[in-house]
Design a protein around this nucleic acid. Sequence first.
DNA 1: AAACTGATTGCAAACGTTTGCGAACAGGGA
DNA 2: TCCCTGTTCGCAAACGTTTGCAATCAGTTT
Lengths: 333, 333
Amino acid sequence: MRTGITIKDIAREAGVDVSTVSRSLSGAYGINADTRSRVLAVAERLNYRANRVARGLVTGRSHTLGLIISDIRNAFFAEVARGAEDAARAAGCDLVLCNSDQDAHRQMEYVSSLAGKRVDGILMNSVAVLDKDQKERLEAIGIPIVLLNRTPGPFSTVCADNKAGGRLAAEYLLKLGHRHVTHLTGPAHHGNLTDREKAFVKAMPPNSVTVLHGENTFAGGREMAQKVLAEHPRKITAIFAGNDTIAFGVLRAILDAGLKVPDDISLIGFDNVELGSIVQPPLTTIHQPSYELGHRAVETLLRIGRKEATPEHHVLPVHLIERHSCGPTKASS
Amino acid sequence: MRTGITIKDIAREAGVDVSTVSRSLSGAYGINADTRSRVLAVAERLNYRANRVARGLVTGRSHTLGLIISDIRNAFFAEVARGAEDAARAAGCDLVLCNSDQDAHRQMEYVSSLAGKRVDGILMNSVAVLDKDQKERLEAIGIPIVLLNRTPGPFSTVCADNKAGGRLAAEYLLKLGHRHVTHLTGPAHHGNLTDREKAFVKAMPPNSVTVLHGENTFAGGREMAQKVLAEHPRKITAIFAGNDTIAFGVLRAILDAGLKVPDDISLIGFDNVELGSIVQPPLTTIHQPSYELGHRAVETLLRIGRKEATPEHHVLPVHLIERHSCGPTKASS
DNA sequence: AAACTGATTGCAAACGTTTGCGAACAGGGA
DNA sequence: TCCCTGTTCGCAAACGTTTGCAATCAGTTT
């Protein structure tokens, strides 16, 4: 199929060989300055645009990265994606966006598709949902991968300090006197969420927290909260949501139930999404550096891609953002 | 560069020609059932993964689409992107994500880059920022393009009925008695926002509305609102924000100023982003079908891509979502 | 028996680049 | 004059596919 003008057209027009054109264009050593500028002029005149597909075929590098996340509609991931795209662009790469909804099968399909297009690297949300066989296939594919959560194994990782975050939430709630809390979070074996959950439960007194798993969305948070509110009308005094998106759903359910935050129930989230500051009440949450996460992730992806380097593991700090969705228990035990 | 196993390996292993392998794999007519299954078995055993780059080179189709939007962190665009990605995936394509920040230069760079990688089509936020020359270059590139806003010219468009939306907002505010309103919106020549602005101004009585342009973000909305609040302490009774993201910023500024919504000032947005329902007060806004926008856009992109069809123009309906951020003026004129 | 048919397969060119290698040429030193 | 060195450039192979065309072969038809 003929598409646009090629290096051959330039060669003919400039009276040189295609190899000379190629070398001129790439700024390679060993080309006379005059011929180079002549070639460049022709290219300019013909409005030449190099075919990156053809180039990719011979060089083996596609200058393309894959980003597989749960759902771009989650503000946290949008922020990560922006950081990733900025870093990719700075490195002359572009990013293909994949929404997995945390589905193992879909995740593998994406990886396979990206591998087929010979991407230079893949950024993945989580492989926690994958079974052993799938992980091995992933490794066998031989494409640099960096994971956005802490996972034992051969892959590099870049993530926030989820455990510290879970601990922070627990300590804060404890300080306010809460002894009957619920943790509403996403699917059971999600890397980051699981880390938060474990650290949170561990930092709380035994039997003081019940955990509920659901969908990692606004709707999921709402449903879980409705369920909890119906079953434990008065007992629980605080809710720790696995992330802000869930927290927003929880907040919605609480308001719908006619309850007040934090008077009737305290709520703390995780992520520190921008909109957390304008909900009512403003959401207390754990901040994680989302943009930097994405940015750092592609940086390390590019780094480990070049040489067969050892896996890198970066964990970025988190901290508590104290706003107004948490308060002391009325009858502090 | 050798990467992975190729069609040649299968050919050698199965004792046939590469062309036979290719035809077997693609399910072409004219291959004996036995040889085909033999080839397929070998491919399976060798864990073969077709090189889409090489295929793209000869077929001229990359099965890749480009999505150029302002900023994925804007919830509206995230929703559009999700709709687009779902539709793309359904058609066997993948989506490369580009954040332009509405910068004309950056936008052209992206187009050029995407053209270089021979994408099958491009989805663009807006070309309103482009000058005449740039638009012509865009057209000359010869890649199917669909615009996410109404633009005269040769390109197909898919967008919401922004004019109707602007009118709806005006009528609603008018009905509530507002006669001194401000419209806070994004950069001056942004396609969709401009349509809303024009229709809004037109539907309001002469000299009843002042318009302020700023950044199309949370921070931008906040800044504009601060400015307005400082300059016109009491006069204006309502604000129409160009979109929900801006509205959230405005809301934040209003709250920071110690004012009440809608008691002191009414606020109406545009988009109907999910989180609009949980801010305080819940945001009255104009709903536009964001997900469908993205979905429809790639569908028409694929359609016009196949044949050299005439441009299509789709405009999707909008409607008012009445929540609690607007109220009647106290001293209705 | 010759020719024709249809099914199956291989050959080779093409897609648009990059790149190793050698050819051509000029200048300089012996 | 001869050789050596360095610069500049062209030739051709390679990347991994797809695909038009011709070749082979078996079975049919005349």
